[in-house]
Nucleic acid binder design. Structure first.
Lengths: 112, 112
DNA sequence: CAAAATGTTGAGTTTATACTCAACATTTGT
DNA sequence: ACAAATGTTGAGTATAAACTCAACATTTTG
């Protein structure tokens, strides 16, 4: 059930019928790097590179980011607040389900 | 209003009346490293080192972590979920106040 | 005031991150 | 079949992260 970053990327790229070379070109990295990532010979790229990849493949970045262990600068900004960290620690302890996350999203929106 | 990591650490350490050498010893780093961090000559340490520092100083880690730009492995785990990332992105757009964060904490607890 | 404690500085080290380059292997289209 | 496209591999590079070590300066205290 725990898919690697590489396998996931390869799958998405295949769905989109794009070659490693095309993707690499549009992202701005060497194509051999894409190959290594897809075969899990190298760890996932930097968060900002993952976002470029997602943009190129026209998929939501969080799908790839979530599988990467990397945190984007945007998210680091959000976490630059003690309350945010406390919140996330509580969340961790509770081990939220997907449904619960979405419920929270609702609460969030109805906050304003 | 934007205090540096170094100044904050120095303040807390002084409040606790602990020397750089004591702190360094108990954390397991060189004392000169503490000095450089406190004077912002070097960037904040790794997240896990920051946590050790907070433990040694007996303060909640999130106070220091929030000012560091670093993300602990614990938090990285929480963010290994697309829903979590989506949630945090929404939060970012909304620029939540402290009060709102706490309100969310409440909602979170009342979720179970 | 002297010595012990504490703090600062410059220079270096080790390890990890984030890739590139060149060569070769495999697959695909005609 | 054969060439163009695509994918894989090994080796290397450049930069940053996360520190250490040794020397010296400053402050504190008996």
């Amino acid at each position: 059930m725990n898919e690697t970053f590489g396998k996931l990327l390869k799958e998405i790229r295949h769905e989109k019928n794009i070659s490693q070379r095309e993707l690499a070109l549009s992202v701005g990295v060497d194509y051999s790097y894409i190959s290594k990532i897809e075969n899990d010979r190298l760890p996932p790229p930097a968060a900002e590179t993952i976002i470029k990849i997602a943009d190129s493949l026209k998929v939501p970045p969080e799908i790839l980011l979530a599988n990467s262990g990397k945190v984007s600068n945007d998210l680091k900004d959000v976490i630059s607040n003690p309350e945010a960290i406390r919140f996330l620690n509580t969340v961790k302890q509770m081990n939220l389900s997907n449904a619960e996350w979405q419920s929270l999203q609702q609460q969030l929106k109805s906050l304003r």
